[in-house]
Design a protein around this nucleic acid. Sequence first.
DNA 1: AACTTAAGACTACACCTGTAATCTATTATT
DNA 2: AATAATAGATTACAGGTGTAGTCTTAAGTT
Lengths: 124, 124
Amino acid sequence: MIELSKAEFDVLDALWINYPATASQIIERLSDDKQWHEKTIKTLLGRLVKKGALTFEKDGRQYIYTPCMERADYTLKESQNFIERFFSGRIAPLVSGFAKSEQLSQQDINELKKVIDDWEKNQK
Amino acid sequence: MIELSKAEFDVLDALWINYPATASQIIERLSDDKQWHEKTIKTLLGRLVKKGALTFEKDGRQYIYTPCMERADYTLKESQNFIERFFSGRIAPLVSGFAKSEQLSQQDINELKKVIDDWEKNQK
DNA sequence: AACTTAAGACTACACCTGTAATCTATTATT
DNA sequence: AATAATAGATTACAGGTGTAGTCTTAAGTT
């Protein structure tokens, strides 16, 4: 799996919002949340290309970037990894930890029920 | 929050198995899973102390280490962090991602149901 | 055509991390 | 007492990461 640093992920995440996109569009999107210098973001884009997380096409002297993977696929792999590391691969203990520390809202519960429901429908 | 690297966490995790414990006990526990040199583990213990994740008492010329936090607290914080970063703080999308990719077993579902059940009992 | 701007390439640099090796001093051993 | 073993402290060192600054060159402007 391609390993991304936090900052690299944030840049890729800004691209996932809508792509293909140019560096300046990505910089614009990130400007709300981060106080990153334009050069910083360009460096990160370069590293993402080098890692194979992005590709680009030239358009004049600009590059138009496209992610090489989908967000859901990437986050799924990260999630598996995370749950493996901290909870021996089982997901319930994570949810249970949230529950115990009052971190679950009624909405979370409803959403979880729906996930379970869908899973069960899918089984039979 | 104290930030631990992967290797540091693994060492702390070996201590959480049973503590207080000496360096050699920790090294022994880790020897099954990791091919780490003894020196490597000592270095990591030192870094954990420096980061405030461990304390120790002297016993002759050995140190007896104790974690400064509980595993559940640490993993909860990591989980919050993770879910914030990748799923905007909502837990269901993580579970849903697992479901969609056939990563949930009947046992997982049962456990999740129990978590929900307990949560609901706790509400009224 | 000359000059300015701006895109990407390349360079920088301190701190973190993984992974030890060497140094120092104390406790065992002979 | 002299020597060996060993615990922790200190040092090492390459690669990753956050965070830009400088260089080069092509495109836009006057």
